[in-house]
């Protein structure tokens, strides 16, 4: 490891990152509010009624971006975890830790909205559709990660153990997804297809894009706010945190 690399990571040490995270968080929060407000307005009032699914389809403007985010956040967490293991940087593990609840929330929203969509479409709250099932397993993976973190008292052991779990999860996700797909086609044929490629109107596409960007901004805002509390909690004995406390009070 060259010393230049180490210096670079030193720069993103918790102490220097803490004030930066606040700025990023506030900026992202503003962007998120604007984008999600615009997105929701467009989903409800601008996007045209679907010729096949009526008004009920509008929930996909929340459902689809939430599903994307839930998968994407897991990947980001795994990337942070890998970085933490390789370079032994504390901040990486904190970032993964800060992202987890948001990812789990999106997975849950995806399932919940999927269920809300399923009821009027198929007359049932739950279908063992390949995508829904995979999403459910993803939620389990998030919960497992958070449970493992919570069970380990020593933060450094927690960082490394949960990083290994994330990497194992990331290797497994494609296999799980593929096997669920296989299982699904075997058992159900193609009677029900979620997110079937309906001809998507341009407005719908733009709306979905705006919502996705809004969720992105929201995730960043929340993760940054959360990483600040994680940093404070973990570094509470460090001198820079103590000085912060004195200045603040």
């Amino acid at each position: 490891m060259s010393s230049r690399l180490i210096n670079w990571f030193k720069f993103s040490s918790p102490a220097t990152f803490y004030p930066l995270a606040r700025k990023i968080s506030v900026a992202s929060a503003v962007i998120a509010v604007v984008l999600i407000a615009v997105g929701l307005y467009m989903s409800f009032f601008v996007a045209p009624t679907d010729y096949k699914q009526g008004e009920g389809y509008r929930i996909i403007f929340v459902h689809v971006p939430a599903s994307w985010m839930s998968m994407f956040i897991y990947l980001v967490m795994a990337a942070w975890a890998a970085m933490g293991l390789v370079f032994n940087t504390r901040l990486s593990a904190m970032m993964a830790q800060a992202l987890a609840p948001t990812g789990a929330m999106f997975a849950f929203i995806s399932l919940w909205t999927g269920s809300f969509w399923g009821k009027p479409m198929w007359g049932t709250w739950w279908v063992w559709d390949a995508r829904i099932t995979s999403e459910l397993i993803l939620l389990f993976l998030y919960l497992g990660y958070m449970a493992l973190r919570a069970a380990i008292d020593d933060p450094r052991r927690g960082d490394r153990a949960s990083a290994i779990l994330l990497l194992v999860g990331v290797v497994n996700i494609p296999i799980i997804y593929y096997s669920v797909q296989w299982w699904n086609t075997l058992h159900q044929g193609s009677t029900i297809k979620m997110n079937a490629e309906t001809t998507m109107d341009e407005t719908m596409l733009i709306t979905m894009l705006i919502m996705t960007l809004g969720f992105w901004a929201y995730s960043i805002a929340v993760a940054m706010a959360r990483v600040r509390t994680v940093i404070l909690e973990r570094e509470r004995t460090a001198s820079w945190v103590r000085e912060l406390g004195l200045a603040g009070s």
Binding site: D153, D154, P155, R156, R236, T237
Partner: peptide
């Protein structure tokens, strides 16, 4: 070396 909160 650090154990939990304590720098040993």
């Amino acid at each position: 070396c650090v154990r939990g909160d304590r720098t040993l």
